[in-house]
Amino acid sequence: EKVLKRMREIKNELLQAQNPSELYLSSKTELQGLIGQLDEVSLEKNPCIREARRRAVIEVQTLITYIDL
Rank of each mutant, 00 (worst) to 15 (best):
A52W: 06
L69S: 14
L34C: 06
L23A: 06
C48Q: 14
L25I: 02
I49S: 12
Q37M: 11
L69H: 05
E59W: 01
V41G: 12
T65N: 12
T62K: 15
V60L: 12
C48H: 11
Q61P: 04
E13A: 11
V3R: 00
S27W: 14
Q32L: 12
N46P: 08
Y66Q: 15
P20C: 08
K45A: 14
G36D: 09
L38N: 04
K45W: 08
E9V: 04
N46Q: 10
I67V: 07
D68R: 02
E9L: 02
L15Q: 04
I67N: 03
N19R: 07
E22W: 03
E44H: 04
K11P: 00
L38H: 00
G36T: 14
K11G: 02
V60M: 11
T29C: 11
Q61N: 14
V60A: 13
I10W: 01
S21P: 07
A17D: 05
L15M: 06
I49Y: 06
T62S: 14
I49R: 08
I58W: 05
L69R: 15
N12F: 05
T29Q: 10
G33Y: 05
E59Y: 01
Q61D: 04
N19L: 08
K11L: 02
Y66S: 09
L31V: 00
L15C: 05
K45F: 06
P20N: 13
T62W: 04
I35V: 07
L63M: 08
L15E: 15
E59I: 00
V60Q: 02
E22M: 07
S27E: 00
S42W: 10
N46A: 08
K28D: 00
T29R: 14
Q37H: 01
P47L: 08
S27F: 11
Q61I: 05
E30V: 01
E44F: 01
R55V: 07
E40R: 11
E44I: 04
A52N: 02
Q32C: 02
E40Y: 05
E22K: 12
C48F: 15
E30I: 01
E51A: 05
K28A: 03
A52C: 07
E13N: 12
Q32G: 04
E9N: 01
A56V: 08
L15S: 09
G36Q: 08
G36Y: 04
E9Y: 06
K28R: 09
T62G: 13
R53V: 15
E30F: 01
I64Y: 01
K11Y: 08
N12D: 15
R54F: 01
E59K: 05
L4M: 03
R50W: 10
L14F: 03
V3E: 00
L38F: 04
A52E: 11
L15Y: 15
Q32S: 07
Q32E: 14
I64G: 04
Q16P: 03
N46Y: 04
A52T: 08
Q16N: 14
L34S: 02
R8I: 09
A56F: 05
L43C: 10
K28Q: 03
E44N: 10
R8Y: 08
V41L: 14
L43V: 13
Q32W: 04
E30W: 00
E22D: 11
S21F: 12
L63Q: 01
Q16L: 11
L15T: 07
V60F: 09
R53W: 12
Q61S: 11
R50P: 12
S26G: 07
V41M: 13
N12M: 11
V41Q: 14
I10H: 00
T62F: 01
E44A: 12
I64P: 03
S21Y: 03
A52L: 10
K45V: 08
V41S: 12
L31K: 00
R8W: 07
R55F: 08
D68T: 03
A52I: 05
Q61T: 05
L34M: 11
I64T: 04
N19C: 08
T65C: 03
L15A: 11
I49N: 07
L14M: 01
Q32N: 09
E51K: 04
G33S: 13
V60T: 06
R50E: 14
D68S: 05
S42K: 12
T29G: 09
I58G: 10
L34Y: 01
P20T: 07
E9W: 01
E40G: 09
L25H: 06
S26I: 06
L31G: 00
I49V: 13
D39Q: 15
R50V: 09
N19V: 10
V41P: 12
L31Y: 02
E59D: 06
K45C: 13
L23M: 06
N12P: 01
K11E: 07
R54V: 05
L23T: 04
E51R: 06
C48T: 15
Q61A: 04
Q37S: 10
R55G: 06
L43D: 14
I67S: 02
I10K: 00
L34D: 00
L23W: 04
R50M: 12
S42N: 09
D39P: 06
E30T: 03
S26R: 11
S26T: 07
R53P: 01
T62V: 02
Q61G: 04
T62C: 09
Q61W: 02
G36R: 15
Q32R: 05
K45R: 08
R50H: 06
V60S: 05
A52H: 07
E13K: 09
K11Q: 11
N12L: 11
I10P: 00
R8F: 07
G33P: 01
K28M: 07
Q37C: 08
L38K: 00
P20I: 05
R54N: 12
V41R: 11
N19F: 04
Q37N: 02
R54T: 08
S27T: 08
R50Y: 08
R53A: 15
Q61R: 07
E22Y: 11
R54S: 12
R54G: 06
V41D: 14
K11T: 03
I67E: 03
V57H: 12
L63S: 00
I64D: 10
K45S: 13
R53M: 11
L43T: 13
Y24M: 05
L31Q: 00
K28P: 00
R55T: 10
R53I: 10
D39H: 06
S42P: 14
E30Q: 07
T65I: 00
Y24A: 08
V3W: 01
Q37P: 05
A52F: 03
T65Y: 05
D39N: 12
E40H: 04
V57Q: 11
L43P: 15
E59F: 02
